[in-house]
Amino acid sequence: MASVRSESTIPVIPLEDGSAECAKELVDAARQWGFLYISAGSDISQSKIDRMFELSKKFFSSPREDKEKCAISANNRGWSSMHSETLNPQNQRRGDFKEALNFGEFSNGKAQQPLPPSLVPHEVELAKFADQCHELCLRLLRLFALGLKIDKEDGGEEWFASRHDQANGPSGSILRLLYYPAIPPGADYIPEVDIRAGAHSDYGSVTLLFQRPSQDGLEILLPNGGGWTAAPVNPPGYEGPPPILVNLGDLLSYWTAGLLRSTIHRVIFPPHARRGGEDRYSMVYFCHPVDTTPLVPVPSKIVQERGNRGANETEGTVITAAQHLKSKLAASYEWGK
């Protein structure tokens, strides 16, 4: 099946496991834009996505004292309140206009962190959804390995996926529920400065973004000085429920010597939101390798030909996935200061 492109040029790709054509389209999109839409083949039903949004709204509408029982800590799990996260501290006068709830990995259907009272009855549902997201990321990682032509004797299609195998230990993977409220009349809000999520790149390997119809606001920074462009919930000409939006993170870019792009993006207040408008809800799955994974050069000639970049840069200095993530989180939350 041929892909189609939106006005923002982000490709819409149907997943086809083991397909060389699909793998090439994924790698091409990751090299050029760092973003792509999945139009088919995700195995995550729309009913499951809708159900997760129901649970998200249930949590964010619960009393603050209940949310505070699971406040975020340095392990990146829990609830972060309005303005507590600043994704672009150099250019923001205060934190992002959003709340978030981060779930770390589940073990045998159980959360490894305190759950808010509103979500305790739904622990199994949340765990199953997180597992489905992880499986989808593994499918994408196998296709990226195929597209990068990693030899079978070096690991082949499993090179990335095997390093994200949760049976081999914990990772920084996170399922995040997000709530961006509309700006109430009379709020201390400066459109030119304040933002829902400041300009940033993601920290991990692969990110899945689930969005609601008509709740736009995501923008990506085009390469080569192209400026900001909208990444709409539904790309122009696309009909049906919103497709899953995929983007590559810093870690996969570092791992592939910058071949796969980790694109700067942000969430703005669209004009209608500035007048009160509509709340925005989204869900994100951030996929990370197992914490102890060494970020060594990928055994792909396509990657190695790029020379001294990222994991290819120096000999004898190898960081782990956990070290990479810790440095990124410290900057966003000012942990350790």
Rank of each mutant, 00 (worst) to 15 (best):
P243E: 01
A71F: 05
W228C: 00
F35L: 07
A167R: 06
V12W: 11
E305C: 12
S205G: 10
P89K: 12
T317W: 10
D66C: 02
G109H: 02
Q132K: 12
Q32W: 05
A40C: 07
T293K: 03
T317G: 04
S80D: 06
I302W: 15
R261A: 14
I13L: 13
G155Y: 00
P11T: 15
L329R: 03
Q90E: 06
L148M: 13
R275F: 09
P116M: 09
L260Q: 04
T9D: 13
R275S: 13
A187L: 13
I10S: 00
I44G: 05
T229E: 13
S61E: 10
S262Q: 08
G316W: 14
G204T: 06
F53Q: 02
D151E: 15
M52C: 10
G147Q: 05
I49D: 00
F129P: 00
S118N: 10
G237S: 15
G95V: 07
S300G: 02
I72P: 08
S201Q: 13
L252K: 04
A161H: 11
L115S: 05
S107P: 00
T293M: 10
P89N: 12
L15G: 01
S300C: 06
I174N: 05
K57F: 01
A100D: 01
S8H: 01
F60V: 08
L209C: 06
L175C: 10
G226Y: 11
A127Y: 06
S6A: 14
G307C: 11
G109V: 07
G78R: 03
G104S: 04
E313A: 06
N91C: 03
R142S: 15
R51E: 03
L252N: 05
F60T: 06
P297M: 02
L115R: 01
